[in-house]
């Protein structure tokens, strides 16, 4: 599903973010990506949705090599990858329904299709009753659920979460984690970068630790393993 082979990345300012990273993630896996800040987690995440290109090596997502992917094919790659951010990135001028529908308009879905599918995902994230709310009227956890709904509305095979619980209190974080687990159970591969030791240690999944641009640890049911 996702495969990195000897990937190197040097930023123009000389920072070496990846030093020969290799990894294989199967379809349907749930993977935590942990490691100290600046170790290369973000670079790893960004490479999967082709926000960054590797300096050397190959990155295969769904059989395609992103290292040589043409710029105009990138949008089609991204339709198959949902992204959830720490700061939700919702549009304040649109209500919940519109924020999610937006992602489907962009891929030119039809109106009835959009309505049906948006209501479906709102059901999954349990926000059907707040479809007409503006983002600022929602709690942080609810906002994150909207952003998850938006990320999965186009039925991606992969969901990438960049510190999805970073801005949330512990209780709300667990809500989000259960939701992600549910989505994973439906067959979506989930890759989640996190600093949340409690979650990693209690909801056991595969853990990939990145240090100095390399995989330092890769355990099937791993632990966080850092002093947070």
């Amino acid at each position: 599903m996702i495969e990195l082979n000897d990937v190197w990345k040097t930023y123009p300012n000389g920072v070496m973010a990846m030093n020969g990273m290799s990894i294989y993630i199967q379809s349907g896996e749930f993977v935590y990506v942990v490691g100290p800040s600046g170790a290369g987690k973000s670079t790893f995440i960004k490479m999967i949705y082709r926000e960054e290109r590797p300096t050397r090596g190959e990155i295969l997502v769904g059989g395609e090599n992103l290292a040589h992917m043409k710029e105009r094919h990138v949008p089609y790659l991204r339709r198959n990858i949902g992204v959830v951010f720490q700061d939700f990135k919702l549009l304040p001028s649109m209500n919940v329904f519109e924020n999610i529908a937006f992602a489907m308009e962009v891929v030119e879905a039809s109106k009835p299709e959009i309505r049906r599918r948006v209501m479906d995902v709102l059901d999954i994230v349990r926000l059907k009753n707040k479809a007409r709310f503006q983002p600022h009227e929602l709690s942080g956890g609810e906002q994150q659920r909207v952003s998850i709904a938006r990320a999965i509305v186009n039925n991606p095979d992969v969901l990438i979460c960049d510190e999805p619980t970073g801005n949330l209190d512990p209780e709300t974080s667990w809500e989000i984690m259960h939701l992600l687990e549910e989505i994973n159970d439906r067959g979506t591969t989930i890759i989640m970068a996190t600093h949340n030791r409690e979650i990693v240690n209690n909801m056991r999944k595969r853990v990939i630790a990145i240090e100095n641009g390399r995989i330092s640890r890769d355990e099937v049911r791993g632990r966080y393993g850092y002093e947070s």
């Binding site: 710029e71 991204r78 990135k89 549009l91």
Partner: peptide, 16 residues
């Protein structure tokens, strides 16, 4: 800007 960034993440083509 924000809207455009999100459009890019959800797979809008450049011409769109």
């Amino acid at each position: 800007k924000k809207e455009i960034q999100i459009m890019k993440f959800v797979g809008a083509t450049n011409s769109f």
